[in-house]
Design a binder for these strands. Structure first.
Lengths: 201, 201
DNA sequence: GTCTATATCGGGATAGAC
DNA sequence: GTCTATCCCGATATAGAC
């Protein structure tokens, strides 16, 4: 049993509710219920819904953004790095299935705010591009540009989780396990798909 | 000047506001303002926000869903079909940039409702899979399954538009034209990426 | 059909007791 | 720090005049 301090309980509940419902759809009452405390306590700890939401956004970005970068900047050979980053990222997202659609919604709802948080996280997307550019110059891969390559990789990892509720119904008769298996396959197959597309021929 | 009937004006305004703000973020007042009519008229024509939103969802799905199917079921050779479907779909989405994130949000907010609407649209995703399966059996392509292939294609078309506001800032210093050009390149490059990945080697 | 005015309600925020 | 009770505003919805 975790009788943690109230602030942590609130934050945990707020993350769950905001990420599932979006900022506008989330109700302070629902957060209070989930945290098993009173609504007034939310305001005691975080002043306002806006402030609470901002904390959630920051923690969420700080949690999910750096994962890609750290794998990309490791010392493995490039192809193994792709295999690892794809597998790790799909794993991370499938354990947090509401994150992708939540973030995409937020990206469109408040792009400047989100970009500012991203900057504060210290992620260096330019370093990722440099790494890719180096491979390109060594002629080990055949791609149009680091930007195209990078967004292709993100697309293939993120979209299948973001669209899961519809895809599971449309492609697998809403069979939960079938889609779980599908995602499991993608942890390896996605990287192979990418590698085949970028190998020099 | 289009002095169309009021119902059409409302629907047009409602589409714009709902798709940009999401169901929860949209305000009836904003819709009325955009339609240049009074708030009460919204209820006169559509009874409630829920009802109005449902109409918007249906019209939106009926507009965007069939495009993929019709290209896929044409008589072109498979590789040309991919080139065409990718180019057409990216074009359609980039002209309606809020649609992808809106739909992904809605997919997670109300999956059953959305799936029911999708069923009503009469789209036959199974026919698409059959088409792909046939190519697979003819050994003209090398893929894991029609499902993986199809979701890969959707991912590569949809995600770069859905995540545009952040990607434009992170990758192109928020240069609007640079990202427009990027999307323009993707209309051809995405198909070539896919084709290289699936061609038998 | 279209408007103004108003009723009603839900939800964010605060006051104040303990 | 935590609660109950309440305030207050914004947003949906309705009434009723024209």
């Amino acid at each position: 049993m975790k009788e943690k301090n109230t602030e942590a309980k609130i934050l945990e509940a707020a993350k769950a509710v905001f990420i599932e419902k979006g900022k506008d759809g989330a109700k302070m009452q629902a957060i209070a219920d989930k945290a098993k405390i009173n609504k007034a306590l939310l305001h005691y700890y975080f002043r306002s819904k806006d402030k609470l939401f901002n904390v959630v956004i920051e923690e969420t970005m700080f949690h999910f953004l750096p994962k890609v970068e750290e794998t990309f900047l490791s010392d493995d050979n490039f192809f193994d790095k792709i295999r690892k980053v794809v597998s790790d990222y799909i794993s991370l997202l499938s354990e947090n299935p509401f994150i992708p659609a939540f973030m995409l919604h937020e990206i469109n709802r408040n792009p400047d705010g989100l970009f500012n948080v991203m900057m504060k996280s210290g992620i260096r997307i330019d370093l990722i591009f440099t790494t890719i550019q180096k491979e390109l110059q060594n002629n080990t891969i055949n791609i149009v540009s680091p930007q195209h390559f990078f967004i292709n990789l993100l697309s293939l990892c993120i979209f299948p989780i973001a669209a899961r509720p519809l895809m599971q119904r449309a492609m697998f008769f809403n069979d939960q396990k079938a889609y779980d298996d599908f995602i499991e396959e993608r942890k390896t197959q996605t990287a192979e798909f990418i590698l085949k597309a970028i190998k020099v021929s």
